[in-house]
Design a protein around this nucleic acid. Structure first.
Lengths: 210, 210, 210, 210
DNA sequence: CATGAATGAGGCTTCATTCAT
DNA sequence: TATGAATGAAGCCTCATTCAT
C-alpha cells in the first residue's frame, strides 16, 4: 500500500471510471497468465498487449511500468492471502486448529489461483527499490504469523516440542507454498479440496505432539 | 545427455586440459551465482563475464549460447542429484528408510548448493526445444523414483495407507524442494545437518504408518 | 501571417467569446512557461495540459498541433515586438536616437516577458515548412530594420563609420537579444529599467561616433 | 570531471584503444553537427548513427546514454574554453587588456567551432542531476572570471566606473556569447578574425573609461 | 467543450551473438 | 584463447494525435 500503485492515468476531476475497471482486470488477468508461464523477466509487454487485444503502448494507461504491473499483481494476491488470515483468525479456534485451518484455506486459494500463486512466490525479487522492500515485508509478516501460531500451539501442548519452532515454521510454510505444484504433474486427478485436505492431514501428522 | 552438450572441449593441440576446466568451471560458477540471484532471464551475459573477469565475447569460447550455459548448469546439478539417488539405493535399506535417507542426503546437497538448487528448481522452464524436453524428463524420473519408494513402503506397512501415493509423493517432494529456502530467513542459525535432520523427522512423522 | 494560424475560433452559436479567449490564453501561458524552461522539443503536451488543469486530448480544441501552438506563441511575440518598432518609429526621432529608444523599449519587453523571449529566440528553428519560412522572415525583417537605422545614423554622423554596418548590426542585435539572460544570474538585483538603461548606455558608447 | 564520463566500454585489462579514438571522435563530431542543428532533445540517436555509418545500438560502445554524450561534448568544449582562459592569463596583461584579449580569443574559438558553441550555450540545461550541477558550475566560474577582470580594470581606471560591475559583466558576456550568430546571417562575408576584432573594438568602446 | 482510451510511430537502451584481429 | 567493435533484434516506454461518447 505504500509503493506507487495509485494514479495510473491522470484524471484531474473525479470522473467515473465505468468501463475502466473491466479493462484493468483484463490487463491484470492477461499479465498473470503470461507471467506465470514465462516468468516476469521473460514476459514482454507485447505479449500481454496481444492477449488483451490492444497495442503495446495502450497498456500504459493501466500501469506506469512493467514493474508496477507486477507489483499490482503481487499486491492483490497479498491482500487476498491476508484476508484469509483474518477470516481464520476470526474463527476463534485453538492455535493448532487455526494453523491447520489456515493451511487448508490458503492451500485452496493457491490451488484456485495457481498463476497468481506462482508469481507471488517466484517473482517477488524482480521488484526493486521501495516496492521490493514492501513485498519482502509481506513475506516476513507472513512467516511471523505462522511462527506465532506454532509457538502457541506448542505451549498448548498440541505441537511437538522436540523441535525448534523456527524449523517447524519453515517446514509448514515450505510444504504449503509448494502445493501450487501438485496439480501440474500427472493428469490432474485430485480436486482442490482433496489436495488441501491431504496437505492438512500430512501437516498435522508431521507436527502434532505425540 | 541427449541435447547439445557436446562440442565444447575440442583440444586440437595438447594444451593443458586443467586450465581449460578451471576457466570452464569459473564460468559456470559465475553464472550460477548470478542466475540464482536474478533469475536466468534477467541475467545478462555481461554480468557473468564481469564476474569471471573476461570480456563478454570471450565467454562464447565456453558455451555456444546462453541457453546452453543454463542447460549445462542444470545438467550438472541433475547428475549430482542422480548420483545421490544411486548411492542411497546401494545402501540396501528398506523402502521407507531409503526414502528418508534420500531425503536427508539430497536436503544436504540442496543446502550446500543453494544457488544450484535455486536454478535447478526455478529455471528449468526457461529452456526450449530438446533441452526443455530432456530437463522435464529428469523431473518426471525423479518423481517416479520417489513414487516407487513410497508405494513399496506402503506395501511394507511402513507408510500410511489412508492416502493416495501420488499425494504423498507430491508432499514429500514439495517439502524437500523447499528446504533451499530455509536458511534465507531469520539469521542462519541452524547447520545444514540440523535442517536436514529436521526435515527427515518431520517427513517421517507426516507419512509414517500409525 | 501566412501559415496555418486561422481556423481556431469558429463560434457557431453565440457562446461567450470571453471564456474562450481566457482558456486560449491560459493554454498559451502554460505552454510558454513550460517551453521556456524545457525547450519546445522536450516539452510534452501532457505537461501543458497538467498546468492548464485539463486533459491532454482537450488541448486540441485550442490548437491543431504542437507546432501550431509554438507558432502561435512566436507569432504573438513577434507582433508585440513589431508593435514596439512602430511605436518608436512614430516618435520621429533621429535615426540614432530611434535606434537607442528601440533598444530600450524592446529590452524592457524582453525582460518583462522573459519566457516569451526565450522561446522567441531559441525555438524558431523547431518550426517546419511554411511556418519556419515565415518565422525566419521575421528575423530578417527585424535585422533589416536595425540595419537601416544604423546606416542612417552613420550618414548622420552619429554612429562610427570605421566599421561595416553589418558588423554593427550584429553586435547591437546580439547584445539586445541577450539581455534576457541578465536577470538569471546572481540574485535579481536590478530593475528591468535599470538593466535596459545600462544596455542603452553601453550600446551608445559602443557605436557612437567618436 | 566529476560526473560520469569515464568507463564507456568495459575493458578489464589495460588494452590499447588504437583505432578506438578515431571512432570516438567521429561519434562526437556527428553528434555535434546534428545537435547543433536540431537541438539535443530533437536529435535522435538514430540520426547520429546514420551519420557515423553505424547501427543505432553500436553507438552505445562510445557512450552510456544520450545524456552522457551531450555531457561529453559540453565538457570538451568547456575544457577548451578554460584553456583559453589560462593562456590569456599567462600573458600578463593589464586586467583591461586581458579581458579584451580573452574576448578576442574566445570569439575566435566560438566562430571556429560554431556547432560546439551552439550546444555549449543552448543545451546545458538539458542535462540532469549531477551533470547539470557540474555544467552550471562552469557557467558560474566563467562569469566570476569576467567579473574579476572587470573589477580590476575599474580599479585601474581603465573601465568606466559609472556602472555596476555586474551589469558590465552581463553585457560583455552577452555580446561575446552571441558572436556565434554573426555568421549565420547574410552571406558569410567576414573572416573570423575580422568579426573577433570588431567585437573587441565595440566592447572596448562600450566599457572603456571616458 | 471535455473526456480518456486508443493509436501508431518512434525513441532510448539492452543484449545475445558474431567475427576479424 | 581473448578481444572489443559491430550487429540486429527486441524491449520498455513516451508522445502527439484522434475519436467516440
Amino acid at each position: 500500500m505504500t509503493a506507487t500503485t495509485a494514479g495510473r492515468s491522470r484524471r484531474p476531476n473525479g470522473a467515473a471510471p465505468t468501463e475502466r475497471r473491466n479493462r484493468d482486470s483484463a490487463v491484470i488477468a492477461a499479465a498473470i497468465t503470461v507471467m506465470s508461464q514465462k516468468g516476469y523477466a521473460a514476459t514482454s509487454i507485447q505479449e500481454v498487449a496481444d492477449r488483451v487485444g490492444v497495442l503495446k503502448g495502450s497498456l500504459y494507461h493501466y500501469f506506469r511500468s512493467k514493474e508496477e504491473l507486477l507489483f499490482r499483481i503481487l499486491e492483490e494476491s497479498h491482500e487476498q492471502v491476508v484476508e484469509i488470515e483474518h477470516e481464520v483468525a476470526a474463527l476463534d479456534l485453538s492455535a493448532f486448529e487455526e494453523l491447520l485451518e489456515y493451511v487448508r484455506r490458503s492451500s485452496t486459494w493457491y490451488l484456485s489461483n495457481i498463476d497468481r500463486a506462482n508469481i507471488f512466490f517466484s517473482e517477488r525479487n524482480q521488484l526493486t527499490g521501495d516496492r521490493l522492500t514492501e513485498a519482502q515485508a509481506w513475506g516476513r509478516a507472513f512467516e511471523k504469523h505462522i511462527a506465532k501460531l506454532l509457538t502457541s500451539a506448542q505451549t498448548d501442548g498440541d505441537v511437538r516440542s522436540d523441535m525448534d519452532q523456527r524449523l517447524l515454521t519453515r517446514f509448514v510454510l515450505g510444504a504449503l507454498n509448494n502445493i501450487r505444484f501438485w496439480p501440474s504433474r500427472s493428469g490432474k486427478s485430485f480436486s482442490n479440496d482433496e489436495m488441501a485436505a491431504a496437505l492438512v492431514s500430512l501437516t498435522r501428522s508431521a507436527i502434532a505432539a505425540p
